[in-house]
Design a protein around this nucleic acid. Structure first.
Length: 286
DNA sequence: GAGGGATGTCGAT
DNA sequence: TCGACCTCCCTCC
């Protein structure tokens, strides 16, 4: 699940469920037990995301407060259950549990399978953010920082969009889809893009990812390409949304009918339509 | 019910 | 380049 929209939504959900409340902090699995004991009984101030990183701010009575850094990795989940009758016993490997009771009913959140769950300082948080590129979901994002990296790089734009130091929060689905929507081949070198093309990528990501936060799915097809509009079966897949090329290898392009192509780039699958996203040819012909 | 792949990243080799 | 993380959901039997 975790692309930037998932983390952004998670931060909103955690804040809605726990902000301003005393939280019971535990690590039923045990791997975060020492830290959890220190945080137990603190007041949760709020949660925020930057790209795929999540930070939970707590007031533990110390001057600086406490900060938990979470990265879900590929398989992690952080499920928020708001307004339940009672907090049930943990099931499976729960690395971190936040729980509260009181007005509005009980609420709890269970973290499983995360690659990172650590107590960090404000300086460590700043370092993580400093290593990250702009996040299209953040109002304070500066897309020029990403453009500065992209237009000087010979690396494929498909690789650059996934580099969290260039752009934060874009994963394999948004990469594939925004490049299709902008009719750009994923192997096209970054330094061959024009600034207007980059601006279109950024603007599109801002809209698509905000929609993802709102719906909890990744839907990228225009109104003319929905299952209803085209009279086709809706997609049933684990990301749940309607897309143009992501994991549609061999199926007909929704725009031109050519079969969707796939390849591996830097260890990850890329998907594109070879007619809608033609191979870029340099004008500097040998 | 088993088996495998995946929306990610880091550290060890 | 490989394993860890050890979840979730899909496909195949």
């Amino acid at each position: 699940m975790p692309e930037g929209h998932t983390l952004h939504r998670l931060a909103l959900d955690l804040t809605a469920a726990f902000a301003g409340r005393v939280v019971a902090v535990s690590s039923p699995q045990g791997r975060f037990a020492d830290e959890a004991a220190l945080l137990d009984g603190a007041v949760l101030v709020g949660a925020e995301s930057w790209g795929k990183h999540l930070f939970v701010h707590l007031d533990d009575g110390s001057e600086a407060g406490a900060l938990v850094h979470v990265h879900l990795g590929l398989i992690g989940t952080f499920a928020v259950h708001a307004a339940v009758d009672a907090v049930p016993p943990p099931v499976g490997q729960v690395r971190l549990r936040l729980a509260r009771s009181g007005p509005g009913g009980a609420a709890y959140a269970d973290l499983r399978g995360a690659i990172t769950c650590a107590l960090v300082t404000a300086e460590q948080r700043a370092a993580v953010i400093g290593r990250s590129g702009p996040d299209p979901l953040r109002a304070d994002a500066d897309p020029d920082r990403a453009w500065h990296r992209i237009h000087r790089s010979r690396k494929p734009v498909g690789a650059l969009l996934m580099d969290q130091g260039v752009l934060a929060g874009v994963g394999n689905v948004y990469r594939a889809e925004v490049l299709f929507r902008q009719r750009l081949h994923p192997l096209r070198p970054g330094n061959t893009l024009r600034v207007g093309q980059w601006q279109s990528i950024w603007d599109d990501l801002v809209v698509l990812m905000a929609e993802g936060v709102r719906t909890g799915r990744i839907d990228t097809v225009g109104p003319e390409h929905t299952p209803e509009a085209m009279g086709r079966d809706p997609r049933r897949d684990d990301h749940g949304g309607e897309v143009y090329v992501y994991r549609r290898t061999g199926q007909p392009c929704l725009v031109c009918q050519r079969r969707v192509s796939t390849a591996v780039l830097e260890g990850r699958n890329i998907f594109w339509c070879s007619r809608c996203q033609p191979v870029f040819r340099s004008r500097a012909v040998g």
